[in-house]
Design a protein around this nucleic acid. Structure first.
Lengths: 192, 192
DNA sequence: CCCAATGCTAAGCGATTGCTTAGTTAAAAA
DNA sequence: TTTTTAACTAAGCAATCGCTTAGCATTGGG
């Protein structure tokens, strides 16, 4: 019976994600959201209830986004250490091309909102559970492929590389390319 | 001639630092600052001009704070690798005692404000220059003490451990203690 | 003692915050 | 075509934002 929306929830959510990614949670007002999303405030609240929930949805959208655009190679079923190497060094070189690096939305959020809000914290943890699982799979494959020793402590190395990825996200804002390359080089060298 | 302040700039600045540390820059209002600092808004603006400058001063104060309370051991002229080990593992165990970890003020700020504001960015960089210098000194001492090989690439390892410290700051909010221990263990093992 | 200079209190400035609500438009079911 | 339902526009809500200002309090020099 009723009238149809003349916007797509997924599309406007992706736009919202980019605004939050660039400016953070608190510094993003609903006014700039409605401009960037291209819809009225009413529609924002109709589709996403409130600002916090929109932000949480944006984090989920971010996870889908990085799965498709950043972790593609790492998410192949048989991804191994060489894929992890490619990924980390790609991040190093990406820093030079772009202007100021936006870093990782989830790392930024962890820093800004931290353990303050339980709902957002839960979403942050979900994201890192996902990355941790991805890393474990890669490390298991790397053992099978004889890229790393058979007695490698998978859990331990997964925690290490998760920490390194979080470090890279911060470092990409504060280090130059050669420093970033050094960081990644040492991180990868230890497992060989 | 004139009347004297009945508060100490350093004391109220340290209080401001703790508020920013806990809630971040944007989420900290001048109203809560005046409550926590124990002085009127007028006095805040008289002593620190505006909110952003107060924040920048708070970051500088944070650097002095960590020099005295966190990096004490690392700043000894002859600090070596064993001191770095002590420091990193102390961070691991600190995560368990406290409630939600506040992380590092500067890492949090890098995530929230990032490259947005040039003045704040400059202050972030100053902080990391300081830590990098500290790390280089430690690594040089470690060579002299034969804790690490003589041909160790100091610059490279300094970038690595700076990245690890940034990672630990994020990870201390998202990992449990054993995961954090694994992260630090692998980071330190590679240099031996 | 009085005066000049700064500190303080408290009220309030315009602007912006997240969010809501009346009034209208559009579209599908009857 | 009529009716019903929801999406739209645009105005506006109270609350809070960073910051300022008028008026009084307090100090040390003359």
């Amino acid at each position: 019976m009723p009238r149809n929306k003349n916007y797509d929830d997924e599309i406007v959510l992706e736009r919202a994600m980019n605004v939050f990614w660039k400016h953070g949670y608190e510094a993003t007002s609903v006014r700039v959201l409605e401009k960037e999303m291209g819809i009225n405030q009413f529609s924002i609240y109709a589709s996403f209830q409130n600002k916090k929930n929109l932000f949480i949805q944006a984090i989920r959208n971010y996870r889908e986004y990085v799965k498709e655009h950043r972790f593609q190679q790492l998410l192949k079923k048989d991804a191994g250490l060489s894929d992890l190497e490619d990924f980390l060094f790609a991040k190093v070189n990406a820093g030079s091309t772009g202007t100021t690096n936006k870093g990782c939305l989830v790392v930024n959020t962890a820093g800004e909102v931290g353990g303050q809000d339980p709902d957002i914290t839960k979403e942050i943890n979900r994201h890192y559970d996902f990355i941790r699982d991805m890393l474990k799979n890669i490390l298991e494959n790397a053992v099978k492929k004889n890229e790393i020793p058979a007695d490698t402590n998978i859990e331990q190395q997964a925690s290490f590389f998760l920490g390194v990825m979080q470090g890279v996200s911060v470092a990409s804002k504060t280090m130059d390319n050669s420093q970033l390359r050094d960081f990644v080089t040492v991180a990868l060298r230890q497992i060989r």
